[in-house]
Amino acid sequence: MQITLRVNGEERTLDVTPYTRLLDLIREDLGLTGVKEGCGKGECGACTVIMNGELTASCLVPAPQADGAEILTIEGLAADGKLDPIQESFIEAGAVQCGFCIPGMVLAGKRLLDENPNPNEEDVRYGLSGNICRCTGYAKIIDAVMMAADKLKVEGSVNNGE
């Protein structure tokens, strides 16, 4: 069967089976390997994408359910080659160790800040609770999200001043 979906703004039509996982479709068919497979059972968050605006474990989505969906992966976050503030913050905070969980962490952080631009630490922990870091580098990951929130506030005030 065929499905049509938009990935990082590009519309694509693909042949799939019901048991093609969205994860495999993105990695194998589209070659976007920023999406990782960790546990394959929705417990680790490495395969996180933003699907129709919500955090989604792509290992638990049958491809036909993504028909008509809007998908954002880590590759689609930087606009015109410029990193998103949350990506910059992860670099500046030194939040990346082995890096395997980071695409999911960054997207979870972005989704949280889209909804709540002024999170406290508890909000950040709840927002990232679906993502596991086996290097256990949580402290700096949380710092990075808080830092991104501050960056966005400054950017916002600059834009408002224009």
Binding site: E54, L55, A108, S129
Partner: peptide, 9 residues
């Protein structure tokens, strides 16, 4: 329930 990724689905 689960996590944000599970609750959305």
């Amino acid at each position: 329930v689960g996590s944000p990724q599970i609750r959305s689905r």
